[in-house]
Write a protein that binds this DNA or RNA. Sequence first.
DNA 1: AGTTTGACTGGAG
DNA 2: CCTCCAGCCAAAC
Length: 113
Amino acid sequence: MKDYPDRMTAEEARAFGEDVLNIVSQIPRGRVMTYGHIALLAGWPSHARMVGRTLRYTPGADKLPCHRVVNKEGRTAPGWKRQRTLLEEEGVTFKANGHVDMERHQWKLIIDN
DNA sequence: AGTTTGACTGGAG
DNA sequence: CCTCCAGCCAAAC
């Protein structure tokens, strides 16, 4: 039993990045997914932060619907003002506090294995 | 090799 | 609802 967290090898980190981009590319119009959920689907449940880093720093990630990724509270990315507009253009509704209405728009996938 | 940095999360106040 | 804090972990300093 490992009493310490797994650490990604360079190869695992590369594969993780590919999985994240692949998952994000499949988010349907008008739906959103959380960083944590994407990390889980990619097989690394505790790497939500790395999902954010991947979308932020990977060249070409802006060609994917990465505006459909928000945090678990429905909050949009810090400093990316246009994200809300992009979402509203595809029918995503926001609450009074400026958060996405997750109850209505969060896209949930089943973990198959 | 030690420290800081986040497109995160969960919990406390 | 908001802010603050601890835990998180690869990357960048």
